[in-house]
Amino acid sequence: MAGIFIFSEDSALAKQLLTPALELKASLAQPITAITLSESDAEELAKLGADKVVVLTGGTWAEGFAEAIYSQISKAEGSILLVGGTLRGKHVAAYVAAKLNAGMTTDAKALKIANGKLLATRVLYAGLAVCEEEVALPAVATIRARTFLAPAPAPAAGVVETQSAEADSRITISEVIPTGDKGVDITAATKLVAVGRGFRRKEDLKLAEDLAGVLKAELACTRGIAEDEHWLPIERYIGISGQTVKPELYVAAGLSGQVQHMVGCRESKVIVAINTDERAPIFEAADYGIVGDMYEVLPLLTAALRK
């Protein structure tokens, strides 16, 4: 069994995967093969430490290449596959893992080799617990964006080859509509004001917007506000199946602090909570908190910060 493989359809994430791949290479002494669908990414992946880059051509739908990616790994009897943890990536990774009859760890935070197995750190119960997961080789792991930084260029560049692949033709993609607040990436914001169910009407979000205005913060929210009420776009929702953020300041207004939400923001530097319920779990997760009616507190806070 030999070979460490990486795959991501996301250019930035593909480069980030090389960092853990290079660490694993140091333990396993096995070459790194980067599989990509992008001709333009190939050169860079080769420069950043991939010994070999395989560009697969023959389609644009990443999930449709799962079978082709599996056959690359199975031919080489690869021992590890790291996949960028986008939703497309998770789909591909789980498919390949099943075909390899391999174990897979989802959203791995740290990876190493121990006792000839892949040892990965990850969360359970929506972030309530962390655990180490030991995966026998061959092993598959998905890694979310920004878990690692891209590595520095390697002393020697790897080789690039192009292969045509047969993509899954059973599924037809008829329409792709880009989503998102164009230009606003809340994962890049240094300050966030997050809103939850404590807001009774959509118009009341103005209170949070005003605070965000004086703090130069972006607005974020819980799942309920984005997915049930549709008061804010889905890209602003923080949590286990939403965004993960690490701002300098996270102000949580009118949200109780359920673990599914907190897992997305708990690496924030300072967390501030405003909630009427003193027993709300958000206060345990906060550095500073005010117990009080946010309808009264927010305007006062905005005014105080404006001075």
């Binding site: 655990c131 997961e133 117990v291």
Partner: peptide
């Protein structure tokens, strides 16, 4: 036979100041 085994499951604890003004 599971290929991925969970080990050392531990509750996640945040180190926070927990200063609450009430």
């Amino acid at each position: 036979q599971p290929k991925a085994l969970r080990q050392s499951v531990k509750g996640f604890v945040m180190q926070r100041r927990n200063v609450v003004y009430k």
